[in-house]
Design a protein around this nucleic acid. Structure first.
Length: 464
RNA sequence: GGGCUCGUAGUGUAGCGGUUAACACGCCUCCCUGUCACGGAGGAGAUCGCCGGUUCAAAUCCGGUCGGGCCCGCCA
């Protein structure tokens, strides 16, 4: 007989079935034992009677929390007064006929089954993340994350996008955030960097003729973690050719609406309201804001999206020079292109950058890219780069742009940020399966660890 | 780089200079045929993160250290 899932037992009254899963709870009444069995789809009450098969009943008395078992039995309707309205399978129960203990389990270090008990501390939860993940909340968060990514993928495939993976071992970029570096064994004394984003590769894919690219991409930055950001995060990374700002915004907007609505959420305003950066600052005093009313904030299923666009391209550095505010690869707004090329009026140059805001958080950002070498070059010149330094930083992009580059633009949507909005969590770690601690210690495993002398020598990191 | 904060049975907390360190959940034993946060009786389990100092006396005060968390800086 084949195992069936617990959620399917409701339609199997009278049938003999096998279910497999974990012992979620046991209630021993002496001559009557109830077991709540948990599998990936839910909970089911299993009943053992002392008056029946004594060997089976003795076995059932041995069961403890989190044992993995296979139980054969007959699904029976519960009497009216025994129905549990809080359980999807609450109208039925399994009358056990055979019990196989597949794996015993030690008493877990914290409670998995009871969501009414205060949550264990994070230290313990991360050390035993595989047990923490069994809990209702984590199952829900991680499954919702999967569904979110699935819906985005489905939409993008339906719109003729191609999913392409870009390298993890790549070149360090001097600007932006601190790089995570990886020593090269074959090129001793040299280092790869892990990508802060697939920005340059996705633009090269536009030059490569794919026109519509996306990737569920990991982005890695060596900056001190916070509650809402860590070393690594995932983004839905998108780039499109032959588009203008509205084309990208409309595509992303349609994807987000379809995705979140299919997951049971409601979107407050459609189409998403749009504010220029100047309007947002005047109206909300910030470029991230929450459009929900106080009453609306009580609805956990309501999402208020908005676009912010026309950001300043540059801001002053402490040293009195200029640096970019969002993305150096962006195009300025058309009316400021001449100013950029002539380096006039720098503080007033606006970029085609657009940010997607949701419930007070930035959920994504993108821009139309500079696809002509002289525009990208001008950005770096404004930032005070010498010709040599420009060549070293983005020479490969300037070179690539020479060979017939379509106008293009895109966006990156933070998967964790979006999931935080969907779940109401305020910690990034609650929507990641295996997050790190604030000091960069991995969950369950003990990374980072020292290397052996032999490994260091092999990498050229230790002489003699 | 800096600031704040928390480390007490397996878990969550209380105790904040003076008996045997308390409570809840969990765990173990026994009882219980309709529970679903089952119930009842009993029990085990803590050198109070670590090192040092102050004191007649330290979980409690002080210094250091290790670990967790939050924030500033940083994060195209």
């Amino acid at each position: 007989m084949e195992r069936i899932l617990i959620k399917d037992t409701v339609d199997k009254v009278g049938d003999k079935v096998i279910v497999k899963g974990w012992v979620h709870a046991r209630r021993d009444h002496g001559k009557l034992i109830f077991i709540d069995l948990r599998d990936r789809g839910g909970l089911l009450q299993v009943v053992f009677w002392g008056g029946g098969d004594t060997k089976l009943f003795k076995q059932a008395e041995e069961l403890r929390s989190e044992f993995v078992v296979a139980i054969t039995g007959t699904v029976q309707k519960r009497q009216d007064n025994q129905i549990n309205p809080d359980l999807p399978t609450g109208t039925v129960e399994l009358a056990a006929e055979k019990l196989e203990i597949i794996s015993q389990a030690e008493t877990p270090p914290f409670e998995i089954a009871d969501s009414n008990v205060p949550e264990a501390g994070e230290e313990s939860r991360l050390k035993y993340r595989y047990l923490d993940l069994r809990r209702d909340k984590m199952q829900h968060n991680i499954r919702l994350r999967s569904a979110f990514v699935q819906k985005c993928r489905e939409y993008l495939f339906s719109q003729d996008f191609v999913e392409i993976e870009t390298p993890l071992l790549t070149e360090a970029t001097p600007e932006g955030s601190r790089d995570f570096v990886v020593p090269s064994r074959l090129n001793q004394g040299k280092f790869y960097a892990l990508p802060q984003s697939p920005q340059q590769y996705k633009q090269l894919l536009m030059i490569g003729g794919f026109e519509r690219y996306f990737q569920i991409a990991r982005a890695i930055r060596d900056e001190d973690p916070r509650a809402d950001r860590g070393f690594e995060h995932t983004q839905v990374d998108i780039e499109m050719s032959f588009v203008e700002q509205d084309d990208v915004m409309n595509t992303v907007e349609a994807m987000m609406i379809k995705t979140v609505e299919s997951l049971g959420f409601k979107v407050k305003d459609k189409p998403f309201p749009r504010f220029t950066y100047a309007e947002a600052m005047e109206k909300f005093g910030a470029d991230k804001f929450d459009l929900r009313s106080g009453e609306e904030k009580k609805d956990p299923k309501l999402l208020a999206y908005a676009w912010v666009y026309k950001f300043p391209f540059f801001e002053k550095t402490e040293e009195g020079g200029w640096t970019f505010t969002h993305n150096p690869f962006s195009m300025p707004v058309p009316e400021h292109l001449d100013d950029l090329l002539n380096k006039n009026n720098i503080e007033n140059i606006l970029t085609t950058q657009y940010d997607l805001v949701c419930n007070g958080y930035e959920s994504g950002g993108g821009s139309i890219r500079a696809h002509q070498p002289e525009i990208l070059k001008a950005v770096y010149e404004v930032m005070g780069y010498s010709a040599e330094k420009i060549q070293d930083s983005v020479g490969h992009m300037l070179e690539a742009f020479k060979y017939g580059t379509p106008p293009h633009g895109g966006i990156a949507l933070g998967v964790e940020r979006n999931l935080m909005n969907l779940t109401g969590e305020s910690y990034l770690r609650e929507v990641q399966a295996f997050p790190m601690t604030g000091k960069g210690q991995t969950a369950v495993m003990k990374g980072p660890k020292p290397l052996t002398d032999a490994q260091l020598k092999e990498l050229g990191l230790k002489i003699s």
